[in-house]
Simulated assay, not measured.
Amino acid sequence: MMFQTQDRDRRAVGYWLLFMAFMVFAMVVVGGATRLTESGLSMVDWRPVTGVLPPIGEDAWQAEFAKYQQSPEYKLKNYHMSVDDFKGIFYWEWGHRLLGRLIGLFFFVPMVWFWAKDRIPQGYKPRLVGLFVLGGLQGLMGWYMVMSGLVDEPAVSHYRLTAHLSLALLIFGAIFWTALSLLNPKPVGGPAVLKRVTHTAMLVLVLQLVMGALVAGLKAGHIFNTWPLMGDTFVPEGLWFMEPWWLNMLDNAVTVQFDHRIGAYVLTLLVIAAGFVARKAPVETKNAAYLLIGTVGVQMLLGIIMLLKEVPVSWGTVHQGGGVLVLAAIINLMHKQRGRIAK
Rank of each mutant, 00 (worst) to 15 (best):
K117I: 00
T255R: 10
A174T: 01
S39C: 04
N287V: 14
E153F: 00
L137I: 05
A216N: 08
V271E: 01
V197R: 13
N184R: 12
V313G: 11
P72M: 10
L150H: 04
V324A: 15
A253D: 14
V133F: 00
F25I: 02
F25M: 06
K219E: 15
E38L: 12
V133K: 02
W16Y: 11
P54N: 05
L128G: 10
T37I: 11
V28P: 05
G316C: 08
L194Q: 09
I89S: 06
G40S: 07
A329W: 09
P282C: 12
G104I: 08
Q4T: 12
R340F: 13
K309W: 13
Q4N: 12
Y74L: 14
T162D: 01
F176D: 06
A220F: 01
Q257Y: 04
T317G: 08
S314H: 07
P282H: 08
N252L: 01
E243V: 04
L131A: 10
V324R: 03
L140C: 01
A63N: 12
V188I: 15
L194T: 07
G139P: 00
V29A: 09
R10Q: 14
P187S: 11
M249R: 02
S314D: 15
L218C: 05
F132Q: 02
S42Y: 03
W245E: 05
K67R: 15
L207W: 04
R279T: 10
E73W: 02
